[in-house]
Amino acid sequence: MRVSTQAASQSALMDLMRAQRELYESGQQISTGLKAPDLKGYGNQAETILFARGALARSDNFVEASKRLASRLDVQDLALNEMSEAVQDLRLALTTNDGSFLMADVQAAFSRFTSALNTQFNGSFIFGGTRTDTPPFTANTIADVQGAANIADLFQNSAQAQTGRIEENTTVETGFLASDLASDLMGIFERIADFNAGPDGPFDGTVTEAQQNFLSTEISNVIAAFENISTAVARNGSMQARLETAQANNAQRSDYLTTMIAGMEEADMAEAATRLAQAQAAVQVSALVFSDMSQVSLLPFLR
């Protein structure tokens, strides 16, 4: 009788402990929303969860990097379009029969173009290539261009354009170099200023035949420079479109990974609530049974 009573008490105690553990686990799921407090609780799924978390982190990092790149490409687009308009201003200035204000208009186009050429984004010069801490073009006036031993000396950009992550595993050249965009155009400004100071100058009043012939030649050169800038505008727009597509694809990837991880980690709240109620009832019953078994005695049978 003593042996069977002890075994029954032990069994009741074990039932009570299991019910309490189930109560605690279901309560934890309700409070945290997770199936388990750590990876050990997920068994064979732990490795898959770790891999998915890593992939999601990489995806999120790319999203942030692509946002910064998108902002830089937006600023770059504005600067390139400003250059394009400055070149058009120059072409319009040269298409004249009255040279009274020609040099003033040429200087205005020069200032507008060079200001765009030295555009900054977050404190970095966007057309300086990998050298972003100094203005890529140092001349402030056309006279500075004339005074340079070589036009190339006025450009301080690096030889390598800036790069960016268009896709998670794809890094491409996303920037432009000031020297590539402006070298030919600076030659045009220099020639105009030299002609103005030469024997067939200055441009003042009605243009002469010699002046008209010179301007016609330079207009053709300006059109070629305009096409160079237009090509850069188009290329930048293509990169923006490609980046938008990559961002959309990556957003879908992040959503998928988030949903997959949630499916593995997050608890079914309705199921957890049901288990909690069942566990509470089981604890009460097990506690009563254990209490009754603990009070079993042979005295009533010996009377």
Rank of each mutant, 00 (worst) to 15 (best):
S9A: 12
Q10L: 14
A12P: 14
L16P: 04
L16C: 05
M17S: 11
R18S: 12
Q20W: 07
Q28V: 06
S31M: 09
L34S: 00
A36F: 03
G43Q: 01
N44C: 05
E47R: 06
T48G: 12
I49C: 02
F51A: 11
A55G: 08
R58A: 03
R58T: 04
S71V: 11
L78V: 10
L80F: 03
E82D: 07
D89M: 14
D89Y: 08
T95F: 06
N97R: 14
N97V: 11
S100F: 12
S100A: 14
L102E: 06
M103N: 06
Q107P: 10
A109K: 06
S115A: 01
Q120L: 03
N122M: 14
S124E: 12
F125Q: 00
F127T: 00
T130V: 15
T138P: 03
A139V: 01
N140S: 09
T141C: 08
V145S: 07
A148W: 01
A149W: 01
S158A: 13
I166K: 03
E168W: 08
N169P: 15
E173H: 01
E173K: 07
G175S: 09
A182I: 06
L185V: 02
M186R: 02
R191P: 03
N196T: 08
E209T: 12
Q212T: 13
Q212H: 10
Q212L: 15
S216R: 09
S216D: 15
S216M: 12
T217E: 15
S220G: 15
F226S: 14
A232W: 00
N236H: 06
S238K: 04
Q240E: 06
E244W: 01
E244N: 10
A248F: 07
N250E: 14
T258G: 15
T259I: 10
G263T: 02
M269L: 13
L276H: 03
A282W: 07
V283F: 02
D292F: 06
S297M: 08
R303L: 10
